[in-house]
Structures are given as structure tokens and as C-alpha cells.
């Protein structure tokens, strides 16, 4: 009996840290994000000082360094937006599918964006980076919407159908993308630069283009956040607790799709932020979604900005795209995590 009690309180204490501890961690996470943002403004092929950044922000700095720092505003802002969106989308997907390996790309968002990029360049010729984003945005949203509609057709079919629908759309669209890209050199060019995933060379236009989509996703995510806790107990338990499972599940998936679509269109497909950040956040604050969501919004951008900074400084003066860095940071973490799960088969 005594062992049972400790077994029950043990994980409970771990998954529900006290208020002071949460506040402290929140402060630390916020500070880390601020630090990452400053680093993103300071570091690059020309390294400036924090003083230059302050000078540029207040308008008192030297003209040249001000220009350098100002050129880093868009990518920093984009990094914050994309990182937060992907992390939140991953948290929602993993919570709703109850699959710890669920990824925002599961619903065919990446393939949809890529298909739109190659189609637009095939029809209208080569475009700029911003043009690519304008093309990718509807493509990503449409692919996600199609997967969602097909996957949830005919009522309550569970997650298997949804994931199959995402896989069908991804496979068919990827075949289409490859066929177009290999036939038309211009499409191939815009596709190959987009698909790596990078924050570079994008102006504020990209940010404004993606903001409405991402913003709608964020609002929707905040609406369903509380219901996800009940969903984590299982469908029956959630229903008996008075939660509308259809609303939470549907709203959560739509929110995840919008967030992932906005981020992917803006910066290209970026691996592992959506997959890894929810795990990091759960290790920090436990399974309560009302804590997971705000922490994901802080940890995601921190990870993405730091990865971008590393990519900018590692091969100076050329750049390593942020998508490559996140994969090479995220994958070893995943492999390490597998090694640690010794007890389970």
C-alpha cells in the first residue's frame, strides 16, 4: 500500500512542478529567447557588438553597423515566428494524436507547399524568395485542409485515417514535385533553394504574408489548449468530463495545420523543431497543456534562432542553412533519447 502511494505521488510531483519553479523556469526560458534574439542580431559574417545593436535600435549608432544590424531584423523576427509556430504545431499534433513522434509535417503541409512552389515557377517563370513564399502559403494550407477533410470524412475515424490521408497527399504531391522539378530547370532551382529551409534573404514582406495564417492558428490553439488535457486521458474520459472532443480535436488539428503551413511557407521545411521542442517542454514542465503551450512558444524560437546563429558562424563567410543545422542538432538528441529508454522494448 505504501509503495503504491509513492508510486502514485512520484510521477505526479514530477509532472506538476510547483508555481515558484514554473515561474522561475518561465523567466529563464524568456531570458534565453531574449539572449538568442540578441545573438541573432550580433552574429553573422560580420560580427557586431551588442553596443552596435543598441545603437542601431535607438538610432544613435554608426551608419554602417546600423545597416548591418538592420539587415538582420527580418530573419530574427521570422525565426521567432517560425520557431514558435512549429513548436506549437508539434505540441498540438503530439497531444491530439497521442503519438510522441507526431510532426507538424504529418498532414502533407510540406509537400503541398513544395508543389505550389514548383507549379508557380513552372507557370510564371522564376520568382524571388518572397514570390516563393506567396506561392507556398496557399499550397500548404490547401494540402493540410485536403488531408484533414479526406482523413476525417465520414465521421469519427480516429487517427489512422488522418495519418494515411496525410501520407497519400504527401506521396502523390512529392511525385508531382519531383516530376516537374526534373523537367523544368527554373522550377528545380526555386525548389532546391526553398526545400533546405533557411531564414536568409527574406524581407519583412514574408513575415507580413505569413502572419495572418500563423495568427489564426495561434488564436485557435489557445482556445483548445485546456481541452487537450482532458483529451490526454482518452476519448471516453474526455467526453465524460464534458469536453467536446470533436471541437478540441478538429480545432487543434486546424490550428496545427495553419501554424505549420505559415512557418513552412515562410522559411521552408525545417526538421525537428516541431518534433523535439514538445519533448523538451514536457521534460521541463510536465504534461499540462496550459503550461506546455507558453513554454513551447518560448523554447521553439530559441532553438531556431540559436541554430540559425550557429549556421551563420560555422562556415563564415558562407552560411549553413538553418534547416541543416536543426536536423544535425535534433537527430543526435533523438538517438541519445533512444539509447536511454533501456527498460522498454
Amino acid at each position: 500500500m505504501a509503495t503504491q502511494t509513492t508510486a502514485a505521488t512520484g510521477p505526479d510531483r514530477r509532472t506538476r512542478p510547483g508555481g515558484v519553479r514554473v515561474a522561475l523556469m518561465f523567466g529563464l526560458a524568456a531570458a534565453a529567447l531574449a539572449g538568442a534574439a540578441v545573438l541573432s542580431l550580433v552574429m553573422g559574417s560580420r560580427i557586431t557588438t551588442p553596443a552596435d545593436v543598441i545603437g542601431a535600435l535607438t538610432g544613435t549608432g554608426e551608419e554602417f553597423t546600423t545597416t548591418v544590424v538592420e539587415s538582420r531584423y527580418p530573419r530574427t523576427v521570422l525565426g521567432i515566428m517560425a520557431g514558435a509556430s512549429l513548436a506549437l504545431a508539434g505540441t498540438l499534433m503530439q497531444g491530439i494524436t497521442r503519438n510522441p513522434l507526431a510532426d507538424p509535417g504529418l498532414l502533407g503541409v510540406n509537400a503541398g507547399a513544395a508543389a505550389a512552389v514548383v507549379t508557380v515557377t513552372a507557370v510564371a517563370g522564376p520568382t524571388t524568395v518572397t514570390g516563393t513564399v506567396w506561392a507556398a502559403l496557399p499550397g500548404a494550407v490547401l494540402a493540410g485542409a485536403a488531408a484533414y477533410t479526406v482523413g476525417t470524412r465520414g465521421g469519427d475515424g480516429g487517427m489512422v485515417r488522418l495519418i494515411l490521408a496525410g501520407a497519400v497527399i504527401s506521396a502523390v504531391l512529392t511525385a508531382y514535385v519531383q516530376a516537374i522539378a526534373l523537367s523544368l530547370p527554373d522550377s528545380f532551382d526555386s525548389y532546391r533553394y526553398w526545400v533546405v529551409g533557411s531564414l536568409a534573404g527574406r524581407s519583412f514582406d514574408v513575415f507580413w504574408a505569413a502572419l495572418p495564417v500563423v495568427g489564426a492558428g495561434l488564436v485557435l490553439a489557445l482556445c483548445v489548449m485546456g481541452g487537450l488535457n482532458a483529451m490526454a486521458l482518452g476519448r471516453e474520459a474526455a467526453v465524460s468530463l464534458g469536453v467536446s472532443t470533436a471541437w478540441v480535436q478538429g480545432g487543434g488539428l486546424v490550428a496545427a495545420t495553419l501554424l505549420a503551413a505559415g512557418a513552412t511557407a515562410a522559411v521552408g521545411p525545417i526538421a525537428f523543431v516541431g518534433l523535439a521542442v514538445p519533448h523538451v517542454v514536457r521534460a521541463m514542465v510536465g504534461v499540462d497543456f496550459r503550461l506546455q503551450v507558453p513554454f513551447a512558444l518560448l523554447v521553439g524560437p530559441t532553438l531556431l534562432l540559436l541554430s540559425d546563429v550557429v549556421g551563420r558562424t560555422l562556415l563564415r563567410p558562407t552560411e549553413l542553412m538553418v534547416g541543416v543545422v536543426t536536423a544535425f542538432v535534433g537527430a543526435p538528441v533523438l538517438l541519445y533519447a533512444i539509447r536511454r529508454m533501456r527498460s522498454t522494448a
Binding site: 529551409g197 549553413l320 534547416g323 544535425f328 538517438l335 533512444i338
Partner: peptide, 16 residues
Amino acid sequence: IGVSAMAQAFTHFVVA
């Protein structure tokens, strides 16, 4: 999944 993601990111980088 981890190893594929790494390999794929590298391939995309080289292709770009």
C-alpha cells in the same frame, strides 16, 4: 527517423 532526417537535410543542402 533521426538518421533519415539528418541525411535528408544534408542531401538538400548539397543539392542547393
